[in-house]
Amino acid sequence: MKLAKKDLRDEELLQLLDRAKLNDSKAIGIICSHLYSKIYRFIYYRVNAVEDAEDLTSEVCFRVIKSIQSQKGSFYAWIFRIASNLINDHYRRRSVRSNVEPAGDLIEEMIDEGNKQSELLEQKELRQSLKKLTEEQQEVIVLKFIEGYETDEIADMLGKSSGAVRAIQFRALTALRNNFITKEVYTKG
């Protein structure tokens, strides 16, 4: 199973956070460049365009650094909460729910990676179905299967119990599966 890169080690992150809270610019630079990819992937699967994902990610970084001195508790839970709120604001501003076709650049990326046409279509449909899930279901699926976190880590990030995350995961996968079956029926019908 191919998973996204894991985090900085906990102790490294804590040290950087302590330094960043003391206004250490170098530590802030390292945290930002490390967080950027992580937040970007989280947002990417919930918005439609690469440009939107980059703009929102930059905004999250900006807000994280701006209020880092008041940060308490789980750092990742905090940043993913900021990211989630920003995504909601983004859709509220645009008044568009994310059931639009994925941007063309994603398709090009997938072609570049040498995927077969059938896989490509499956991935496209999967991504569209993902956007029909509830907000918290999308969060769990992206954190678990794109970022590669374990259930306990996700529970910590989202401020929920592990059992609650497992329940969300189960419902999300069932909903995705049902979406797929419905699509197949429509396509074949």
């Binding site: 191919k2 699967y45 994902a53 991935q123 991504r127």
Partner: peptide
């Protein structure tokens, strides 16, 4: 299995 084959985009 399908979900884990989704591309991992990098900014």
């Amino acid at each position: 299995q399908q979900l884990e084959t989704l591309p991992k985009p990098e900014p």
